[in-house]
Design a binder for these strands. Structure first.
Lengths: 257, 257
DNA sequence: TTTGTTGAATGGTTGAACCATTTGGCAGGT
DNA sequence: ACCTGCCAAATGGTTCAACCATTCAACAAA
């Protein structure tokens, strides 16, 4: 019913503002950001806090910082990492670009989760099996009560990632899950296909039966249906009702001092 | 011949030390790190610099920071993102775990690049085609001269990622490329399979011919051969010559004050 | 033209102070 | 014995004011 409030730190807010400038192509790659002292003043904060924001942007591969040489904006297409996926969903403003990106993201998720399911079927331990059963049970309950379905869905997929028994796979699933968690937040974009629970039950059973091919197949079938439903929803938002598009555009901003 | 020296900032060095504690399981998930003031003193630095390090670790999903509530170590298996892949290769110390992880990583690379090649074959623009040709030419030259082969190889694959025409794919390739770039650095782990250049030429031609299936197939063939050669190399390092294992263990550390 | 010098701009680091939140203990009431 | 409310310590968040190290461009000297 209720959900925790979030308080973004000043550094996070500053980082987001600069990140948006970059991801929305409002600053050209190769150009330089104003000096730290200057930027801190413009944002109404101090250098140390600003530098925390700069650190984040540097780690994200959006800018390059050289002592004495200023801060250069990089071309995020060439230097960005996959973890930008979650920020992109929050920070890109053009609805068309956002829609196109969601389509890309679900396609990647489909391919990745097929691989994950195949590995999970082959590699899962008895402990993983229990976790998966528990996650599915929680999901069923969520569907029955109609509350927290999205969260339970993502938790189930995270569990599948762990069951694959490989660190890189678990991390890949985490990255994708984080991204879709943001997309789902506030019910901005969450649809359930016809026969959703049955599809996921088929996945669970294939994995538990240690049948890699069937696991991959069932996951693919699930996501093909889910993605189709999702894309229809996007279609109706981007073409049809303009007024309803508000849910599609970000709402929150930095809180005042 | 020569390569640029790197000067890690203090914050980077601090972050790495803490990251190593976590990734090598020397601090338990759920435990708390010492207070910022305390940590800063132990590292012989100040709070502001330490906080930059903390920011990085937080963004990497390794710790959780709450005002007034201390810094909690998270379970990196459950909260880490895929970008940790490059840090892991640098920071994990147990040779067995490192070897196992490399095997995981190359398997993921193989699957991912097959998808990338398929998309690149379908989606690449004329501009992408030119870039790919140029990248392959540079690679051929590097092979001929025997210098900078690893860098040219990675550049070629990055180029392939851009040719797929999807941001999320380019980012995925970037993340993988960053990781393998670190692995290759200082020649720590770089092998070329029999018929390397021919294999990649086959990839290039399949992509340019807009033949997705053949592109995926040739990429898979290339990596199967390359990975086999790589794994043999790892085998010989981990089992056979112990003395030579030095190249397999990290060498650099934080520089003195 | 090339090379060396120098000073301004800019990021890197430091120390101290104060604000905001969390946490746990303590006093009082029930 | 248990709950409630309050307070103080611990701890992260923010700010300010310096000073150090590197880069870069302008300029002088060879």
């Amino acid at each position: 019913m209720f959900e925790a409030v979030s308080r973004d730190s000043i550094a996070d807010q500053v980082a987001r503002q600069i990140r948006r400038l970059i991801l929305n192509d409002r600053v050209a790659p190769g150009s330089r950001l104003p000096a730290e002292r200057d930027l801190a003043q413009r944002f109404g904060t101090n250098r140390n806090t600003l530098r925390e924001a700069v650190r984040l942007l540097e780690e994200e591969g959006l800018i390059r910082v050289r002592q004495g040489g200023g801060m250069e904006v990089l071309d995020y297409r060439r230097t960005g990492g996959i973890h930008l996926i979650s920020h992109y969903l929050d920070d890109v403003e053009d609805p068309a670009r956002r829609a196109a990106f969601v389509i890309e993201a679900v396609a990647l998720r489909r391919e990745a989760m097929a691989l994950v399911a195949r590995l999970a079927a082959r590699e899962h331990s008895e402990r993983d099996a229990e976790d998966l059963r528990a996650a599915f049970a929680a999901l069923s309950e969520a569907v029955a009560s109609g509350q927290g379905v999205a969260a339970a869905d993502i938790a189930f997929h995270r569990c599948l990632g762990l069951a694959a028994g490989r660190l890189v796979i678990a991390w890949l699933v985490n990255t994708l899950a984080d991204a879709f968690e943001r997309l789902v937040r506030d019910g901005r974009l969450w649809v359930v296909e016809e026969g959703y629970l049955d599809n996921l039950r088929a996945v669970l059973e294939a994995v538990l039966a240690r049948d890699p091919d069937r696991a991959a197949e069932t996951v693919t079938r699930h996501f093909e249906a889910a993605d189709e439903a999702l894309l229809q929803r996007i279609e109706s938002w981007t073409s049809g009702r303009e007024g309803d598009g508000a849910a599609w555009t970000r709402g929150t901003n930095q809180g005042g001092t």
